[in-house]
Amino acid sequence: MSQVNRRLFAASVLTAALGIAAAASPGFAQQGMSQDQMMKMKQSNMDRAKKGHLVACYGINAAGRNDCAVGAHSCAGQATQARDPNSFVLVPAGDCEKIDGGKLKAG
């Protein structure tokens, strides 16, 4: 493709893409619409519970991970600390068991 054709092709792609984007989310045509606003048009009630759960899992609203307090874990007994993490081996035992039935794959 020549330089001129390359430019014209790019411009036509962008024009078509802008049309597609506007059709996909009508508010897109507005300058600088926030993602939040765009999302609101599509979000259903069912999503809201899932979103809240996700946000909580990653500590977005609930946990200050950088704090100056000594946490309650410092009131934990000596026993936890004395245990050498390298001195024993644990096997994963959570939701992975629902996936692979608790069986280790060979290798």
Binding site: Y58, G71, H73, G94, D95
Partner: peptide, 24 residues
């Protein structure tokens, strides 16, 4: 010792919650 371990464990748990569920 407890505070450093506790704070950093908690931080990892907040960045990798699905992994924590997977392994227990």
């Amino acid at each position: 010792r407890n505070n450093v371990l506790g704070t950093l464990s908690a931080a990892l748990g907040l960045n990798f919650p699905a992994t924590a569920c997977l392994v227990g």
